[in-house]
Design a protein around this nucleic acid. Structure first.
Length: 431
RNA sequence: GGGGGGUUUCCCGAGCGGUCAAAGGGGUCAGACUGUAAAUCUGAUGGCAUAGCCUUCGCAGGUUCGAAUCCUGCACCCCCCA
């Protein structure tokens, strides 16, 4: 790997805004410039999949690998059993062993997807349970715990903020969390020569705990680097919607929904997202910024963001499908399509099956149709929607309350596409 | 242990015998404007067979022609004094 490639990683992370805090900047820069380094980031199995909050540190590992360094992804099979108090305002409920095992399976597969395990300098996937399980409580206390001054532990933000609120408090279990993560770092240093840990800004306390432990246990100087949390301009976390988090797995968040999430990113946040999450160059991103000033209606930035992330997470096929669905959904009237096309395009749109007979005779009233499709909570609600001009059949607005669906309203062999408002779709299948 | 206050529609919060399906705000939904953005503006927001009817104001009773509003009991919450 060329030396100049190595040199660039720090400055790249810097212009991308990926650096929140680092330990001794000078030394870290020269370390990264001189030799390929092994870098690690940990992910606890708090849920059975990764969401976009995990994305920033993952992309960071990916960038390190592309720059010629060796990334280690750590799945927290052990730490997940304890629960990280960092960034949490109250004590967490412990997950059951089965739950953790299940979650671990889910995230291990996904973690692998963003890194290259085949190259000359392959990424490494580890599970901290593998080394933590060897310890007995007594030996851990003697060999590791002895190096932790409680007064320093109490000074950590994650602990202090909890103790300051008299209501919240903290269990001894959570209090001990930082020992485990600190030891992970030391272990990875010993086993893989890993000198650098990266993570979200809320991990700073845990990372420095590891560095401190390394010093006391005499494994040498360790380094830490944190990235900012992905937030919107109004301070809210990115990736949260009314329906919940945006996940990386296609089962939890469809490629279409994923694509649309990014496509709808606020102008105020888009630059930040492009820099933190994509692999577009500085030039491309600033060109997009200019285009956004002059031709905002083209939504070039949003499109590039949505495309590059969907491609990375869901592959070419996922992207093609998402893009095609977006074209049809936000396009003109839907007609003369085939069932298979519609089913594919509206893959994650709720659908209801009805008897073909309901279309015969007088047909199905628009009010009933909206209720059946789940687009209205009650008939009153459906009436309101139509009244206010928010009801659409095959993307054509229906304003007449007495409108009845008949065979002529089928967009394909058996499907009618209903919509409420701008974006809420549902299918009725008449079989 | 003594004294006081509270419980209202998704949330906060007015109402304190009829004109109350219940002010106002938030949220949500829809519309307009736009760029599938933001901001803004408008409308809607218990249900139904929708000029009408039915069900809602902690729970159960009672007073009254009539109660979210008054009385009694019960449950839960909060504050002050000890």
């Amino acid at each position: 790997m060329a030396a100049n490639t190595l040199q660039n990683i720090y400055s790249e992370l810097d212009w991308r805004g990926s650096i929140h805090q680092t330990t001794d900047r000078e030394r870290l820069c020269s370390l990264l410039a001189e030799n390929p380094q092994t870098v690690y980031a940990g992910f606890d199995p708090t849920s059975d999949g990764l969401h976009i909050g995990n994305f920033v540190p993952l992309m960071m590992l990916r960038r390190f690998q592309k720059a010629g360094h060796c990334p280690i992804v750590l799945a927290g099979g052990a730490t997940g059993m304890i629960g990280d108090p960092s960034g949490k305002s109250e004590e967490r409920n412990l997950l059951s062993a089965e739950q953790i095992e299940h979650n671990l399976q889910g995230i291990m597969d996904e973690l692998g997807q963003f890194l290259d395990f085949e190259s000359a300098r392959p990424a490494i996937l580890v599970n901290n349970y593998d080394w933590m399980k060897e310890w007995s409580y007594l030996t851990f206390l003697r060999d590791v715990g002895k190096h932790f001054p409680v007064n320093q532990m109490l000074a950590k933000e994650s602990v202090k903020s909890r103790l300051d609120q008299s209501e919240a408090g903290m269990s001894y279990t959570e209090f001990s969390y930082m020992l485990l993560q600190a030891y992970d770092f030391v272990h990875l240093r010993q086993a893989y020569g890993c000198n650098l840990q990266v993570g979200g800004s809320d991990q700073w306390g845990n990372i420095t705990a590891g560095i401190e432990l390394g010093r006391r246990m005499g494994v040498g100087t360790l380094h830490g680097l944190t990235c900012p949390l992905l937030t919107k301009s109004d301070g809210a976390k990115m990736g949260k919607t009314e329906q919940g988090a945006i996940w990386l797995s296609a089962e939890k968040t469809s490629p279409y929904a994923f694509y649309q999430y990014w496509f709808n990113t606020d102008d105020a946040d888009i630059d930040n997202c492009l820099r933190l999450l994509t692999e577009l160059t500085e030039e491309e991103i600033s060109a997009l910024g200019e285009d956004r000033q002059t031709n905002p209606q083209n939504r070039q930035s949003q499109q590039r963001l949505a495309e590059s992330l969907t491609l990375l997470v869901h592959g070419q096929q996922g992207l093609t499908g998402a893009r095609r669905a977006s074209e049809v959904l936000f396009g003109a009237t839907i007609s003369e399509m085939s069932d298979s096309d519609l089913t594919e395009i509206f893959a994650d749109v709720p659908s209801e099956k009805l008897s073909r007979d309901t279309l015969g005779g007088e047909g199905l009233s628009i009010v009933d149709a909206l209720c059946q499709a789940g687009l209205a909570k009650s008939r009153s609600d459906a009436r309101r929607t139509v009244d206010q001009g928010g009801a659409y059949v095959n993307n054509a607005r229906i304003e007449n309350l007495d409108y009845r669906l008949g065979p002529g309203d089928l967009a394909s062999e058996t499907v009618v596409v209903l919509r409420s408002g701008k974006k809420r779709y549902a299918l009725l299948k008449f079989l």
